[in-house]
């Protein structure tokens, strides 16, 4: 029968009628090229006694599968992101420091050793002949492992952040979204912060220097890494940072209190940034007019 080819099969193919776990997995993970008359096929194949029985089984299976899927998404919580982003930073910083050390050591033993992680990757493939070479190659191998771990953590963050904070991740990117959550101490804490605080998260040193009276107020903290701030001309960066922080704060609140994607807030921000950047063009036009 055609329904034994997985590409054409219904969720119930190869599942015993009372195997709830397999049914849950099949509904959550299965795919098929096109829909068919599943109730009739299920009755023909003996999975269900009749169409009513099929729908009863489908009801139980979809409730189970969807409840499990929702719970999995909710376990992908903000605490995991906080650990992940801190681990990512530690792994990257340590890998870079150790890569320098490994390059220095290996450079005295092998010819043409490049600096950095890529140099360590090269050294890790060398065949050592002496005790010293064995240590240098081994150290380079640890550097590569750490760099690979950082990359794997980054991929985890990119998968997890959109489930934990869909609007914040869409607006800031998964990594910056996770940094903001970590700096605030969680998604709920971030959702409760005023946007002026979000604007300078990560610039605490500059902020306290300002409060003690010997520095100007910081225009932006970690959100400087966002292209909307970084790629806006310096004279308008404060405006861009304030606009971005305002919408990030709203995004964090939507994510914490409701969790659905809302396109409106993203469009509003795009409009606002376009307006701020248009000032630079206006100034240029004005300057030309003066000539």
């Amino acid at each position: 029968m055609t329904n034994h080819d997985p590409a054409h099969a219904g969720w119930f193919a190869d599942i015993l009628p009372d195997d709830a776990d397999s049914a849950t997995a099949a509904i959550a993970e299965g795919t098929t090229d096109q829909p068919r008359h599943w109730p009739e096929i299920a009755v023909e194949s003996g999975f269900a006694a009749d169409v009513d029985d099929y729908y009863d089984r489908l009801h139980k299976a979809t409730l189970d599968a969807t409840r499990t899927a929702v719970a999995e998404h909710e376990r992908a919580d903000d605490r995991q992101l906080v650990h992940a982003i801190r681990s990512l930073d530690d792994c990257e910083r340590t890998a870079n420091e150790l890569a320098e050390r490994a390059a220095e050591w290996a450079g005295g033993l092998f010819a043409d050793v490049d600096a950095g992680i890529e140099g360590a990757r090269e050294v890790a493939t060398y065949e050592p002949n002496t005790a010293a070479e064995r240590r240098a190659v081994s150290l380079a191998t640890r550097v590569v492992d750490l760099a690979d771990e950082a990359e794997a953590i980054r991929e985890f963050i990119e998968r997890t952040a959109p489930a934990v904070a869909p609007n914040l991740a869409a607006m800031a990117g998964p990594v910056l979204a996770s940094r903001l959550i970590a700096l605030a101490g969680g998604l709920e804490a971030l959702a409760k912060k005023p946007s002026g605080t979000v604007q300078v998260l990560g610039a605490e040193d500059a902020l306290f220097a300002h409060l003690e009276g010997h520095a100007p107020s910081p225009k932006h903290g970690i959100i400087f890494t966002h292209e909307y701030v970084r790629e806006t001309r310096p004279a308008d960066r404060g405006s861009a940072a304030r606009a971005l922080a305002g919408k990030l704060t709203i995004a964090a609140r939507i994510d914490h209190y409701s969790g659905d994607h809302r396109e409106g807030v993203h469009e509003d921000l795009r409009d606002r940034i376009a307006t701020i950047r248009a000032r630079a063009e206006d100034d240029e036009d004005g300057a030309e007019g003066d000539r």
């Binding site: 969720w11 098929t32 068919r36 599943w38 489908l58 009801h59």
Partner: peptide, 26 residues
């Protein structure tokens, strides 16, 4: 859906019908 026995809830992306075509009938 709990109290409606012919309502089948699915956590799926409507932009990717192949991820629920094995459940939703034609």
């Amino acid at each position: 859906a709990q109290s409606r026995d012919r309502l089948f809830p699915l956590l799926k992306d409507a932009r990717s019908p192949e991820t629920y075509a094995h459940v939703v009938e034609s």
